[in-house]
Nucleic acid binder design. Sequence first.
DNA 1: TATAGAATTGACGTAAACGTAAGGGTGCAA
DNA 2: TTGCACCCTTACGTTTACGTCAATTCTATA
Lengths: 153, 153
Amino acid sequence: MKLVSPGEAAANTNDMSDKAGEDLVRIGEMAKKYGVTLRTLRFYEDKGLLNPQRDGSTRLYTRRDKARLKLILLGRKVGFSLRDVKQMMDLYDPTGSNTKQLRLTLDKSEKQLARLRKQRALIDDAINELSNSMAAVRQMLSERSAPQASVAG
Amino acid sequence: MKLVSPGEAAANTNDMSDKAGEDLVRIGEMAKKYGVTLRTLRFYEDKGLLNPQRDGSTRLYTRRDKARLKLILLGRKVGFSLRDVKQMMDLYDPTGSNTKQLRLTLDKSEKQLARLRKQRALIDDAINELSNSMAAVRQMLSERSAPQASVAG
DNA sequence: TATAGAATTGACGTAAACGTAAGGGTGCAA
DNA sequence: TTGCACCCTTACGTTTACGTCAATTCTATA
């Protein structure tokens, strides 16, 4: 069964679903579209983060999957683990107000924000220490007549 | 053979070496002194970063080892890998001017500094993105009457 | 129909710096 | 002699997010 020939995603002549305009794409196109590898998409599915339809064994991603993938990638970008992302997404309920999900997300976000700030502080420390060390090394290089005062011993 | 009874590091009645005042310590004291675990010290030795003497099978760390450990810990703090630290330390030659070592150190330091700055930029990005998301989530929480506009789909 | 291009599952490999457990030895104080 | 406080080596486990085959199958097209 032909779905979307590689290279033309718009003209879908498929009669897969009762809903028109489902815009199904296979894994290759999906990967290209979002700059991830096939392995990554399969991995996310294995971890329960994605759940594409199947045509036989072939994965078919809907725009729902695309939305989820976007969220995953955003989550990864801000430093959430896949586990965190899953926890937050698992709380999604299309019928409710999603208050719980939003609260959890906010809670995790606050913690992550704190971690990020801590990390930044550590990096700033490291930058300072490293700059100092470099100054010292430069000193020693400029005074190449003091064999005793080496940096390692 | 008794070397340094635990708790008194100064009064060494040992006749280990011909050099007086060697100030040898065993692994436990070394670990405590520098806030690392025994495993860490053994690991560093296994990786060729430390080379303590032995009394039978017992490791004895000299002040040379202490200096090296300090360097290792500084290196780790500024984000060098142990491999990098080893490369730099391996170039140390007590008889020379250590120009090569210093140059390598400076070179690696510059690269590491660049990495640190890049990382900091990434973190700043993440902080911004996360802050934006959080604002959006707070919005949605405050308008708990819009079921359609959920964060996950 | 042959062939290239896409897709599948399964499963081991990778990186870094140790953690942790197992099994065993040594010395010293009560 | 018991027991504790140290010490030793060996070796597998941990974490996270995939990478990298391998062997096979499906599909479209020239």
